[in-house]
Amino acid sequence: MSADHSLNRRAVVKSLLSNRGDMLVVAGLGQCTYDCFAAGDDPRTFYLWGAMGGAVPVGLGMAIAQPERRVMVITGDGELLMGLGSLATVAAKAPNNMAVVVLDNERYGETGQQPTHTAMGTDLAGVARAAGFKSALVIADESGLPAAIMAAREAPGPVLVVVKVSAAPEPRALPPTDGAYLKHRFREAVVGKATV
């Protein structure tokens, strides 16, 4: 198993989402959902509590529907590994408003800290680049953080940013689990009350 990394996931997400403007966020299940909630709840963040492997495709459908807004998917290495093919789908569609941030702790944090494939050498930025993403980068310490935030917030998409983060557990910060509520408040904040 690889060594732990120094960056704190909560601090990284807080920086990614500060002064977020009209950006839309999709949070992958598990700790990324807790991190995004801990950074400050917002109806324009759609928290996933399941649907493992679905964070990137949710972001793609959203990015196509809302081409004038930045869409940022914040997810984990384990969640993304379950839907790696979705990176090829995003690359083929090439939405210039979409960013994927992978908080890579090299662990399945929800199930007992078992190592993921990234602990054994899988390079998710390399996968994204080979799939055809416009750009992809990896950062592993504070010095890389400004470039990572700039890329995730402003670089022409599709862009993927891998942030190597510490596997140390954070306090639980739990957003609502009611999916219909999360859906309604997101839509009302983004497109208004109309339903059909």
């Binding site: 839309l24 999709v26 759609f46 649907a51 492997g53 679905g54 964070a55 990137v56 495709p57 949710v58 972001g59 793609l60 459908g61 959203m62 990015a63 196509i64 529907a65 809302q66 839907g83 093919g85 979705s86 789908t89 859906k183 997101f186 839509r187 983004v190 497109v191």
Partner: peptide, 13 residues
């Protein structure tokens, strides 16, 4: 992917 994609599309209107 399509199931998740169309959830995102709906969220985006």
């Amino acid at each position: 992917e399509g199931v998740a994609h169309l959830a995102g599309a709906w969220l985006g209107g």
